[in-house]
């Protein structure tokens, strides 16, 4: 089966600005791929390139095995998308907006509108004008338009934007279900790594137009920095005992000790035993994992040549 999305050294330049620079992606069918980057990193431009909305300056794109060409026939009947902020005809109701979209997708059954309204929790707002609903519900309407025709490939730009916490969980579960049960491929962008880490199988990190890292969840977990934080009444004795055992011990700004040694992180109980035996029993032993956001900033800081 061909990859759902494949790009080969994709470049998009606007005058002197290179918005997307040599991006090569490969997203397998049924995968949830999160495309993460700061605002202005090139996420939306990449999505517009994938949807044929802008012409690449260089490089090629294949969607569902078909090469994309401006103005050419494309596999849009199998693709659902949401780009940037959700928009709708303000004077039409939610239902009428979806009906208009259904008519632009030949073969999409009439009942699809009611089904998607129910699926996205839009039933109470179905007959309200789109111009009079909240941003969160407009986002749901945008997702409903993307999902209306049961696509096999979903391309979503910041799908959780504007949703309340319950809405975010709901959409996350919906996308999970679509990928697991129906084999839908999801390509989604976000500027919040922690938000997509719970959902994605694979993550691509884009910074200043370049894809700086692609990693699966296991690699992400492996790459995150961990440290063991030690508190004791007699910190000097504890530090001496740890140093004597060959650990690199540092001090934390909060007045405790930290060990980044993998042996200590994997066996914190050995540290506890050793400190007890050395006469400096620990009053606190915490295994701390680097925040995803910190990891992300560290990564793009390295890519930008500066310390995060």
């Amino acid at each position: 089966m061909p990859p759902a999305i494949q790009t080969d050294r994709l470049v998009k330049r606007y005058a002197k600005v290179t918005a997307v620079n040599q991006v090569s992606l490969r997203v397998e069918p049924g995968e949830i791929y999160a495309f993460v980057g700061l605002n202005g990193a090139g996420k939306t431009t990449t999505i517009r390139l994938l949807l044929g909305m802008v012409k690449p300056t260089a490089g090629e794109i294949w969607l569902l095995g078909k090469k994309l060409q401006m103005g050419g026939a494309k596999p849009w009947d199998k693709v659902g998308y949401l780009v940037e902020t959700p928009e709708a005809y303000p004077e039409l109701t939610v239902r009428q907006n979806l009906e208009a979209m259904r008519r632009l997708r030949p073969g999409c059954p009439i009942k699809a509108v009611d089904e998607i309204i129910e699926k996205l929790g839009l039933t109470p707002y179905a007959d309200r004008r789109a111009g009079a609903i909240s941003y969160g519900n407009l986002q749901r309407l945008g997702l409903a338009k993307a999902l209306l025709h049961s696509p096999t490939l979903l391309i979503l730009d910041e799908p959780a934007n504007g949703l309340d916490p319950a809405g975010i969980v709901e959409i996350r579960e919906l996308l999970h279900r679509l990928a697991r049960q129906e084999g839908v491929t999801v390509f989604m962008s976000s500027h919040i790594l922690a938000e997509v880490a719970r959902l994605a199988n694979r993550i691509g990190i884009i910074h200043e137009g370049r894809l700086i890292q692609e990693l699966d969840m296991e690699t992400l977990e492996r790459n995150r920095q961990r440290r063991l934080l030690v508190q004791a009444r007699d910190l000097l004795r504890a530090q001496a005992a740890l140093a004597a055992a060959g650990y690199q011990v540092g001090a934390t700004p909060q007045g405790g000790l930290e060990i980044r040694d993998a042996r200590a992180i994997q066996n914190p109980e050995e540290i506890a035993t050793m400190l007890v035996q050395a006469g400096a029993p620990p009053t606190g032993l915490v295994l701390e994992e680097e925040e995803l956001e910190h990891y992300f900033l560290r990564l793009i800081g390295q890519a930008g040549g500066e310390a995060a």
Binding site: E87, A88, Y89, L104, P106
Partner: peptide, 18 residues
């Protein structure tokens, strides 16, 4: 003006038909 144009650009109904 309503920024709905992006919903019309990647559809099985071609832009020419629209």
């Amino acid at each position: 003006s309503d920024r709905t144009v992006k919903d019309l650009l990647a559809l099985p109904t071609s832009r020419t038909v629209i």
